[in-house]
Design a protein around this nucleic acid. Structure first.
Lengths: 248, 248
DNA sequence: CGCGGCCTTGAGTTCGTTCAACGATAGTGG
DNA sequence: CCACTATCGTTGAACGAACTCAAGGCCGCG
């Protein structure tokens, strides 16, 4: 099953962006076993209160970490792309307090917690790498908090587009200025704390200013610097992109 | 210096809430060395872009993780109470992308990264505990994202009051329904994505409804259940409080 | 006493929401 | 092949929650 193997090696590549791993350590990651699961768009993968014994690696598609409010509104706290572990934290906190949902047709690899714990215990360096991955997750969450709390709608949407550009590029899915954003406007709204209607208007504004264009689901960013400026985007918080690239 | 020793043991107690530690592991934590630093209210502890070689344990006071927007507005992404490591993540991601500030007179213990890495490598169980601590941090951040994105001002403020109640209680500073919230209204505003003026009105509303009262800086929650209900608060995301207490 | 930080309150404004309708596209079954 | 339905995107008009601006009060401190 080459696609699955690819996902594991992509996960390994991601860890190696921020952590130097020995050959043995790399081998330990590649020798993880998994179960492959398909999810349709909008299908829920995990429910608040679930206690899980395996982590979910996104092999293809897109996954969101979300909560439902009493009013029925949904809030998305985090997005996970191919190569991301959507719930690596569950290894150390197995009872989850949020939901996971597939935002589109998605392939997930379930990896037993036990195996991750084992290789983390055997190779302290891998334990650090996993910890680091969770820290990067937290760094993105922290950025979202201030974005949603202190920026206007235009900047929030622009920021999301910039972030996804870099993350898709890192994941090997397109380039930062030209990628397949597989999100509906309602999903963008849930991730930015806006309404679908207003996201639509913001997209219109971004198009009218010539900053981006969108055909089918392919986003083209025509002026990265300008978009990043309106978003007040600085890539520092995405660490592990190989901080060597000094852009912005 | 008993106060400092107390802080370390409080940090240990915090780790032990979610992780069973052997005597040796406990001893390893208690034998960490530190440098004590005092910070005045509003003084900045760390700046975005700093690369640090030690973690900051809050021994007394309160610390915020924040970002400044171009407009000059400040957004607070996280609050750290006594016993919390304000930047445990910096052990694995030493170049930070946010600022840390003392919200009031605060005592910080600097603990060298090197020592934390050493004991994490020696005791895999401690590595898991540190990782878990970062995961809990992320869990709170995720909750803040959806709170700020999808709840109205009343619920956001109420939620913060509930969260701080439980966290202060856990830290041994007061009880959940009666604690010294040492925040100014402007600081609450930065943490909830509101303006100071509006936070003031929300406090007034909470008082008028008899839900809370506030004298000096001592907050009294008169009806926890009702406050938690308006906040849509559920304590699950604060894990490591000893999930055995089934309240809410 | 005067100053600065913080809290409080009122009045007008705005950004984003709500409600509602319509268009486009794709899948489905008769 | 064509209604039929569902999902998603688009647009207008009215509304409202939170913001901005402004003024004044309280209190501790130099």
């Amino acid at each position: 099953v080459p696609a699955s193997h690819y996902a594991i090696s992509q996960f390994l590549a991601r860890l190696q962006m921020s952590t130097a791993l020995s050959l043995q350590e790399q081998q330990a990651v590649l020798s993880l076993s998994w179960t492959e699961v398909e999810h349709q768009a909008h299908s829920q993968i995990a429910h608040p209160g679930d206690t899980v014994d395996r982590a979910s690696l996104v092999a293809w598609g897109m996954v969101a970490r979300f909560n439902i409010m009493r009013s029925g509104e949904r809030g998305i706290a985090a997005l996970y792309l191919p190569g991301d572990m959507a719930d690596l934290h569950s290894v150390v906190v197995p009872t989850i307090s949020w939901g996971l949902t597939a935002l589109r047709k998605t392939t997930i690899l379930h990896i037993p917690h036990r195996q991750l714990q084992d290789i983390a215990s055997t190779y302290p360096n891998l334990a650090l790498a996993f910890w680091r991955d969770t820290a990067i997750d937290a760094s993105i969450l922290a950025r979202w908090v201030v974005n949603i709390g202190r920026k206007d709608a235009l900047a929030r949407v622009a920021h999301l587009l910039c972030e996804l550009g870099l993350r898709f590029e890192r994941a090997g899915h397109g380039r930062r200025c030209n990628y397949a954003i597989s999100l509906t406007q309602a999903q963008v709204a849930d991730a930015t704390g806006l309404t679908a209607v207003h996201v639509n208007r913001i997209f219109k504004a971004l198009k009218d200013e010539g900053l981006v264009s969108l055909q089918d689901k392919n986003l083209a960013i025509h002026d990265w610097d300008k978009l990043a400026h309106t978003a007040e985007f600085s890539r520092g918080y995405l660490l592990a992109l190989g901080g060597n690239d000094p852009n912005s």
